[in-house]
């Protein structure tokens, strides 16, 4: 039995309606994301300075960009920050997740304590850590007052070490989140496999290194993708913690782009640095999304 046939106009409407509903969002994304990417890409090839200019200038901005000491410092800092941030967060997250997975009493209290920094703004995190790391007010001062006179911890004032303080604060903020990801991964492992391995007499160590950790591969990948893209986008934390200093010691690509575009009137160079940042993220995200979407159908 067929339901009563709707009229032709209604049928057409019914056919198009879903696409119609989707279209405002699609329009916004196409314009504000992809249109803007093209626009910024175009600007990066022009001689724009304080205001956008549409005079094409070839790859002049890119040549200028790669000749800038500040840009090279920013990239070097991103490499140091990115590698340490991803590595420490992953290791710490995994270790905490495994420790928490040992039928801990009070897990319900500990887990939110590890995770709450993720709910904070990087500006708040930066404010707290700027103070905590300040030699005259924070940890160093406290240790002196507690009688450890020779204790020094002045990385935040030290050009060579300041970038590591950004790592410290960023790890504090994100490692609990990575822990939560690994914990969910651990809880998803089939307990039958573990029981079988235990019956075979596998030690606890080899249980984890041979069976559990290899099974967490997808979580490692997700954590890597999330952390890498957070690292490349890192901006707020540096602004709040060191404001790029001392000198330019904690400059990152995101702060470089902002200052060249909006305060140094080098919009073309700023645009070209944004294009490089996009390319870095795309090289990580696109393969990831491609494989994720393909697997599912």
């Amino acid at each position: 039995m067929q339901p009563s046939l709707p009229s032709k106009a209604q049928a057409t409407l019914r056919e198009v309606l879903p696409r119609l509903v989707l279209s405002p969002s699609l329009f916004l994304i196409l314009l504000f994301v992809y249109g803007f990417i093209i626009y910024t890409g175009y600007l990066s090839l022009t001689d724009s300075r304080m205001l956008p200019s549409y005079e094409l200038d070839g790859f002049g901005n890119y040549t200028k960009l790669w000749g800038q000491r500040n840009w090279l410092i920013a990239l070097q800092n991103l490499a140091i920050f990115g590698i340490l941030y991803i590595a420490i967060c992953s290791v710490l997250g995994l270790v905490l997740a495994i420790l928490l997975d040992q039928k801990i009493r009070g897990e319900g209290i500990l887990r939110p304590i590890y995770l709450y920094p993720m709910a904070l703004s990087f500006i708040v995190t930066g404010t707290a850590w700027k103070w905590f790391l300040d030699p005259g007010l924070g940890l160093e001062n406290t240790m002196h007052l507690w009688g450890w006179e020779s204790f020094t911890f002045n990385w935040i004032k030290d050009r060579n070490m300041a970038i590591y303080t950004v790592v410290i604060a960023a790890v504090w903020q994100s490692s609990g989140f990575v822990m939560a990801m690994f914990l969910a991964g651990l809880r998803g492992i089939d307990s039958e496999i573990l029981k079988a391995a235990q019956m075979d007499g596998a030690s606890r160590w080899s249980l984890y290194t041979r069976i559990v950790i290899p099974q967490l591969r997808p979580v490692f990948l997700s954590a890597f993708v999330v952390l890498a893209h957070l690292a490349i986008k890192a901006y707020d934390l540096v602004i709040a913690l060191t404001n790029g200093g001392p000198g330019r010691a904690t400059e990152l690509p995101a702060t470089f782009m902002y200052s060249y575009t909006f305060t140094r009137n080098q919009m073309g160079v700023g645009a070209s640095s944004a294009v490089i940042m996009l390319a870095m993220i795309a090289s990580i995200i696109v393969p990831y999304l491609y494989s994720e979407l393909r697997e599912r159908r």
């Binding site: 994304i29 196409l30 994301v33 992809y34 990417i37 600007l43 944004a274 996009l278 993220i281």
Partner: peptide, 18 residues
Amino acid sequence: GLMLFACFIPFQIVLIPM
């Protein structure tokens, strides 16, 4: 896919046109 990629773009790429 287009919408998903939009989640991850560095916002520096849209600051000037925005």
